[in-house]
Amino acid sequence: MKLHFIDRTSSATNSLSVTQNSHPHFLKFWHFHPELELVLIVKSTGTRFVGDSIEKFNEGELVLLGKNLPHMWINDPSYYKGSTDLKAEAIAVHFKKEFLGIQFFETPEMKAIAHLISRASLGIVFPDISKALKKKIKGLIKLNDFDKVVSLLQILQELAKNSNSRILSSNGFVKPFNNNDSQDLKKIYEYIFKNFNKPISSNKVAEVANMNPSAFSRFFTKIHRKSFTRYLNEIRVGYACKMLIEGEQKIISICYESGFRNVSNFNRQFKLIRGITPNEFAKIYDDTTELE
């Protein structure tokens, strides 16, 4: 599926934009842009594509997307029938991380929002936000420029405190680096992302982190709430998803390039992590391309 870059710089007159979209259906447009995007689904249902995440979406859900994260919303088939009176409605807010200055979100007062923006690099879904927050997001469209900025900061602060949220895309699709990570974690991440498509042992990563193997295992599991092997397989599957979406290589080549040593284990781990096989995953994107 072809990925499109959207450049808003030529038409932008403000540091953030708020748009209210109401159409018979959302555009089937797989795209990315340097702005973060906050999307409230007001009406309609369908399938949401964010990075390598493919899930159903419903009215009322809120999604925060990091910069350059590919995404697309496709409505259910009933929305594309000419005689239907169904509507797809959404509120979309676009802003760059540095829209208030390069160091604004590095201040102590903005720590919670900075962490939220970092998490958004993989996409975050808030499936059940309060009516008051929905009203505040819808109200952005009517505010003057100054009040929009103030209200957006309030919204982001509330989302940063929201415990009912979930990361969408996988670590392998978008490489996460956080300036607040410890030096030990940075060493671990750098080694994993440089070598994930080669044979990697937890003992070797422990050596890189200057830990003994048992201490490394406890440390890694505490931080990620999963074993190192599971995390590594998620990285590899995420990378495989990226190549499957691009559709330029055969699955057997993708298997080895993403770090798996045989196709059967690749298929098994892919289904365990994504819930479908590599073939089924690729077919979803092929079918989507045919609809464009």
Rank of each mutant, 00 (worst) to 15 (best):
M72V: 00
W73G: 00
I74C: 05
D76K: 00
S78A: 12
Y80L: 07
K81W: 08
K81L: 15
G82K: 15
T84E: 09
T84Y: 01
D85V: 09
D85E: 14
L86P: 02
K87H: 06
A88N: 02
A90F: 00
A92R: 05
H94P: 01
H94W: 09
K97R: 14
E98P: 03
E98A: 11
F99M: 08
L100V: 07
G101Q: 00
G101T: 03
G101I: 01
G101N: 01
I102Y: 13
Q103C: 05
Q103N: 14
F105L: 02
E106C: 06
E106I: 04
P108M: 07
E109C: 04
E109D: 12
K111V: 10
K111L: 14
A112F: 08
A112P: 03
A114E: 13
I117C: 12
I117V: 13
I117A: 13
R119E: 15
A120E: 11
G123A: 06
G123W: 06
I124E: 01
V125Q: 07
F126Y: 15
F126E: 05
P127C: 08
P127W: 10
P127S: 08
P127V: 10
I129E: 04
I129K: 03
S130G: 08
S130P: 07
K131W: 07
L133S: 10
I137H: 00
L140A: 11
I141D: 06
K142R: 12
L143G: 08
F146S: 10
K148G: 07
V149Y: 04
S151A: 13
L153I: 12
Q154G: 10
Q154W: 06
Q157I: 04
E158F: 03
L159M: 11
A160H: 05
N162H: 14
S163P: 07
S163R: 15
N164V: 12
N164F: 14
I167F: 01
L168F: 08
L168A: 04
S169T: 15
S170N: 00
S170P: 03
S170I: 02
N171Y: 04
F173H: 02
K175H: 02
P176L: 05
F177S: 07
N180T: 09
D181W: 04
S182E: 06
D184G: 01
L185M: 14
K187T: 10
K187H: 11
Y191T: 00
Y191S: 04
Y191I: 05
I192C: 03
F193I: 10
F193Y: 15
F196G: 02
N197V: 06
K198F: 12
K198W: 04
P199M: 11
I200Q: 05
S201E: 12
S202Q: 13
N203I: 15
N203Y: 14
K204D: 11
K204M: 13
A206C: 03
A209I: 06
N210I: 10
S214F: 03
A215T: 12
A215H: 12
A215L: 12
F216S: 01
F216A: 02
